[in-house]
């Protein structure tokens, strides 16, 4: 047992390179290792999703998928890197909703979002929850909205920086309830959550990845989930639609892309492999722990991702332009 783990640790990387040399049984693509670019730092929620599916897809493809973190500038550096890469199927990108919002948030992108990529499929859509410091007065979501409208001069809403999930949800909330209040940006979710726990700010809307444990621990108060259905982990938490604000429905969807010009044969192969990975029990369980679920097989397709990206670009263009916030 010990020896097995020990070997596992020390030879973990050696296994990667063995997979390289031991290739040859697969006909045609893929013939060597594939690099999956994640445009965010290692260890973040997007990186976690990428590593989960990359590992399972590697098994199916018979070639290792290596995750490379190319963080910076709200994910646009990594996306730009892939847009310029060879369209041979050996460089792919896993990006989230930021792919769609960056098209408007950044006025000078180095790539044309709708024309620089081929599509593989949707991976997962992480829901968000509106949470507040635990001694915040309102008891339910309608009460919360009324309170925010009434005290628009004094309430404060935290977000993790421009373009972050919590920022997008915040913009959506402001436009949904047609009220302007003070938003407080932080450098990342961690510091924002710390100030929420310390009662320095009033509320925040963030992914279940970041909020579910705090809600379960009773350190923050949860008002509503932004998903179309109630969350499996919090069946008592109403959805925003139930509370009468369906415009606030939003999820942090993740998709896999390839550079423009990648052959259909390759994207279909990757898509099939993605669907298999998403059906894997381990992946389903790991995602459930994060308060999310894999996208259904019908969505893990090139067509579904393309449609999603295009509709989301249009949706966020209105929201972002109304808010008048840009990242460059």
């Amino acid at each position: 047992m010990v020896i097995r783990h020990l070997l596992g640790a020390v030879s973990a990387a050696a296994v990667l390179s063995c997979a390289l040399t031991g290739a040859g049984f697969a006909q045609g693509y893929p013939e060597r290792q594939i690099t999956m670019v994640v445009p965010f730092a290692a260890g973040g929620p997007t990186d976690t999703v990428a590593r989960l599916v990359a590992e399972k897809m590697s098994g199916d493809l018979g070639q290792q998928i290596i995750v490379e973190n190319v963080g910076g500038a709200g994910g646009t550096l990594g996306a730009g890197r892939v847009a310029e890469a060879d369209a041979d199927g050996y460089t792919i990108l896993l990006h989230h909703i930021g792919m769609a919002t960056a098209a408007t948030l950044y006025r000078s992108l180095p790539y044309d979002t709708t024309n620089a990529f081929e599509y593989v499929g949707l991976v997962t859509e992480v829901p968000m929850v509106m949470v507040a410091r635990k001694d915040f007065e309102p008891v339910d979501f309608p009460g919360f909205i009324a309170y925010v409208k009434e005290n628009a001069d004094t309430v404060t809403m935290a977000n993790a920086g421009i373009g972050a999930a919590s920022h997008l949800c915040g913009m959506l909330f402001q436009s949904a309830i047609e009220t302007q209040f003070v938003t407080v940006p932080y450098k990342g979710t961690g510091p924002a959550m710390t100030d929420l726990l310390g009662g320095q700010v009033d509320f925040m809307c963030d992914q279940t990845t970041n909020t579910s444990q705090q809600i379960a621990g009773g350190t923050v108060k949860a008002y509503a989930a932004t998903s179309p259905e109630r969350l499996a982990i919090f069946p008592d938490l109403p959805t925003v639609a139930e509370a009468g604000v369906p415009q606030m429905e939003v999820g942090i969807w993740h998709g896999i892309y390839a550079p423009k010009g990648t052959s259909e044969e390759v994207t279909t192969r990757l898509s099939a492999s993605l669907q298999k990975a998403l059906a894997d029990e381990g992946v389903v369980k790991a995602m459930a722990d994060l308060g999310t679920a894999p996208s259904p097989a019908a969505d893990a397709t090139p067509a579904a991702l393309k449609a999603k990206l295009e509709s989301e670009i249009a949706r966020w263009k209105t929201v972002i332009e109304a808010a008048g916030v840009y990242a460059d």
Binding site: A12, A13, A14, L16, S17, I66
Partner: peptide
């Protein structure tokens, strides 16, 4: 770095 730690560097480039 490349073999033991498996860093995502391409050993020989395009």
């Amino acid at each position: 770095f490349s073999y033991a730690l498996g860093l995502p560097f391409r050993r020989f480039g395009p």
